[in-house]
Each structure stands twice: as structure tokens, then as C-alpha cells.
Computed example of a mutant assay.
Amino acid sequence: MMKSIIFYHHFIENIKDFLDGNGTEAYHNAGKWTHIITKNNEGLSLIDKALLETFPNANIANEYYRIDNCIYESLAEGYKKDGELNFHQWRLLAAVEHENAWNDWSDELVKLTYIQCPLRVVISYGDYDSEKEEYTNAMHLANKIAEAINLKRYIYDDEEFMLIFGPRISSINDEKDIAKLYKAYIWNGEFFQKL
């Protein structure tokens, strides 16, 4: 199974578990929700949990390269000394950007375009089209940007790029449905396609 799909399923389960256990109050507060999603001081964030569940023997790094959440693996000998110099050996496995501002996530898409790693994920929010059961406007913009920056030039065959959109407060009819309204879109080599 693709790492993007594994990450998505763990991420959605983590959101569902959090909301079931804590209620939806935090979802209504952008600052609190960002803290819970990306940098929870009381434990692992929901993104970090999903990353560790996807890459179990790896290490978390927050704000590395100014990216919200990263995960990497130490290679063979990892960190060691080479004479007086520190010699680091590691490989970036995934980079995740979360943008709470529903109208400003496209910067994160462009940013991750230029980061090379096996899995890149942008998580944001949009207006949910309940008729089509997806984020129609956001996907139209994402694919327009992908074409404009020639995204396919930056994604190799063994790499995955995924966008995950959750509902803006104005798109929620039943608070029990919040986790169900998160949708994933995976880059298929030509455009972002709904999972």
C-alpha cells in the first residue's frame, strides 16, 4: 500500500479519536486546532502520530526546513564524528505542511514542490461541496497551480504528493461528521485525483 494512503488513514483515525474523546471545541478555534494538529506540547501532535504510525522506526522533526512536521530515518551509522567534524547521515521520509487559513494553503503546495522526499502532504481546509462530496474549488485551484509550476517535473516515480482537505466550520452540518469530511487527493503524474 502507498505510504500516502497509510498516512491518510492514520491521520483520519487520529482526528476521529481526538474529537470523540475531547469534543469539537478545539476545531472551532484555529489556534488551538493548529497546536493539536502540528505541535502538541502535551504529547505527539495528530500529524506526528500519523507519521510515526506510517514510518514506525523513524524520527520526528518539527519546523525542520521551516516545514511543520517532518520524519526522517537515520542511515547506517547515523551521527558520528569525522575527526573534529560532525558527520550526519539521515534521509527525509516525509514533509507535512498544515495551513489553517482556508484561503492561503497554495503557498504550502508550492513550498513542498521543491522539497525532495518520498512523501509530501499539505493539509488545509475548504468549502466542502456536499453534492459532489469533495473540495471542488480547492482541487480546481490545486490542479491549476500544479500545471502553472509544472509539478510533474518535481515528482519522481517513487515519490508521492497528497493534499488533504478538511471542512471549514461553515461547511459542517453535523459535528459528528468532521472526520468523515476530510478528503485526500493524490498526485497521479498529471493532476491531483481524489483517493
Rank of each mutant, 00 (worst) to 15 (best):
I15S: 00
K16S: 13
D17R: 12
D17H: 11
F18C: 05
L19V: 08
L19I: 14
L19S: 05
D20I: 12
D20Y: 04
G21N: 15
N22I: 02
G23E: 03
G23D: 02
T24L: 02
E25M: 08
Y27S: 01
Y27I: 04
H28W: 10
H28D: 07
N29G: 00
A30V: 05
A30E: 15
A30H: 08
G31H: 12
W33H: 08
W33Y: 06
H35F: 01
N40L: 01
N41M: 09
L46D: 04
D48K: 12
K49N: 11
L51I: 03
L52V: 08
E53M: 14
T54V: 07
F55G: 05
P56V: 11
P56G: 02
N57F: 08
A58F: 04
A58H: 08
N59E: 07
N59F: 12
N59L: 14
I60Y: 05
I60C: 05
A61S: 01
E63S: 05
Y64Q: 06
I67E: 01
E73Y: 02
E73T: 09
S74C: 01
S74N: 10
A76I: 11
A76Y: 06
A76Q: 03
E77F: 09
E77Q: 11
G78R: 09
K80M: 14
K80P: 00
K80C: 13
F87D: 15
W90F: 12
L93S: 00
L93V: 07
A95Q: 06
V96Q: 08
H98G: 00
E99P: 00
E99D: 06
N100W: 03
N100K: 15
N100G: 15
A101E: 14
N103E: 11
D104H: 06
D104E: 11
W105T: 05
S106A: 07
S106V: 10
L109P: 02
V110C: 09
V110E: 10
V110S: 00
K111N: 15
K111G: 02
K111F: 04
L112F: 09
Y114L: 13
Y114W: 07
I115E: 04
C117R: 00
P118R: 13
L119N: 02
R120P: 02
V121W: 08
V122Q: 04
V122H: 08
I123F: 03
I123Q: 09
I123V: 11
S124T: 04
Y128C: 04
Y128P: 06
D129N: 15
K132N: 14
K132D: 13
E133Q: 15
E133A: 13
E134F: 05
E134D: 13
E134V: 01
H140K: 12
H140A: 03
H140N: 13
L141R: 15
A146I: 03
A148L: 14
I149C: 08
I149A: 02
N150I: 04
N150V: 09
N150T: 14
L151Q: 12
K152T: 06
D157K: 14
D158F: 12
D158E: 14
E159C: 04
E159D: 14
E159P: 03
E159T: 09
